[in-house]
Design a protein around this nucleic acid. Sequence first.
DNA 1: AAAAAGTGATTGATTTTGATTGAAAGATGT
DNA 2: ACATCTTTCAATCAAAATCAATCACTTTTT
Lengths: 252, 252
Amino acid sequence: MLTYERQEAILKLLEQQKIAKLSELTSATGASESTIRRDLSELEKQNRIKRIHGGASLPSRKSEEPDMQTKRQVFTKAKDQIGRLAAGRIADGDSVFIDAGTSTEAMISHIQSKDVTIVTNGLNIIEASIRAGFRTYVLGGYVKSGTHAFVGRAAVEAMKQYRFDKAFIGTNGVDLEFGYSTPDPEEANIKQLAIREAQQAFVLADASKLNQTSFSRFAELQEAELITEETDSLEKFLHQLMDYTRVKAVRL
Amino acid sequence: MLTYERQEAILKLLEQQKIAKLSELTSATGASESTIRRDLSELEKQNRIKRIHGGASLPSRKSEEPDMQTKRQVFTKAKDQIGRLAAGRIADGDSVFIDAGTSTEAMISHIQSKDVTIVTNGLNIIEASIRAGFRTYVLGGYVKSGTHAFVGRAAVEAMKQYRFDKAFIGTNGVDLEFGYSTPDPEEANIKQLAIREAQQAFVLADASKLNQTSFSRFAELQEAELITEETDSLEKFLHQLMDYTRVKAVRL
DNA sequence: AAAAAGTGATTGATTTTGATTGAAAGATGT
DNA sequence: ACATCTTTCAATCAAAATCAATCACTTTTT
């Protein structure tokens, strides 16, 4: 049985019953467990299925708008892990800027310190921050549809009134040469300011953002600390980084 | 039975009967108590269910503060009527300030004109305004717990950058002598500014606010137009007003 | 023939699970 | 109200299931 054939068979079976155990797939195709696992990994990378412990299921095909509400429900393990790492950097008494976005939102519930001041330009962050009981400040500005981030002249002016101990920024692209980038120039502007007004800056990015570039660059790679998940694409990225910068070892 | 399968089954059962005991879930899935508990914890973390002592139920649809929640449910009909009246004052092309609060929130869904710019200092107003598809600007500032209004120096500074065609303000008290008042001086400050920076100002108040005073006055009675519901307490208030001002007739 | 890709088996690590425990929350009786 | 009993809960542990990584072997490609 050809690889292609087998993977199609897996998909077909999944469409019939929505969910399939590993054992069902091995007996249906005659292939070994290892092979099926490899197939599942590959198919998942193509977003054609979703792996679950013990088997596979169809991807949650929310054809709905990538609205904040639905996006928020897809709190992936990755974002949660990144959120926990990021939250760990916050110390008692800190004043922190938290960028609009879902990655950054995930960190708020993990913040342990109680005495933290949060400044943000994101609607979803305000809500999460209030829910968690933090002292919360908001930049003003124009509300962008889609991300619901506050941008524009008012946001820039407001930003200048603050200095942060730490800034946590979301991104759409991380690239060795181009640095950090995001599609919207207005949002990039705010991100850039936040990084420069903060003593320490962190960029949160899941694996899908590595080696990507977007329209507007908002920081060089060395201007912020990258917080990301531990995957093989991170490994690959680190090797590239070592080649690029001639650094011989990087500690996580 | 796979973990994913089981959790889906739990959700399905809950959607059918709204609430489920632990024992129901164990016998329905065949899993142990411990496992079900773990599932419930996880599902709750994803906001997909709500745990209760002895089992689980569907999440309370809105994750807002209870006082906000109950407030919003209480004077619904009255607020809706007031909201419709207020929205009727908005014309195409207007730039309007809409104060934080539940009365003002009620007006947004009634706005007919499409080309309206909304500026606000209220979290709930942002959400409603975005939902309704208006061009939305936000004042920055400190987020007050309770009302979730943005106040403080930053909000004042931001306010100075705008001029409004109309301003719609909520209030806690309407009094013939003391004018309009609200408990929080910071919020009063913003309300006062908004009224003065607007060509026309409207105060929204349901019947329970008539003949009430609160700590901080933010405007004289004649500085804004009062929009309220038609009740006998309004009649009474109007008669008092006529006595007080010696006006002989007031047209609604 | 050499290199690359695919496969199945094996291994050790990780995740999931059910049982057990003491603590916490509710219910009951006085 | 108070003390007592029962139920439910969270934390912990060891066993089982599942997983990712690796190796050796086969097939395909160059």
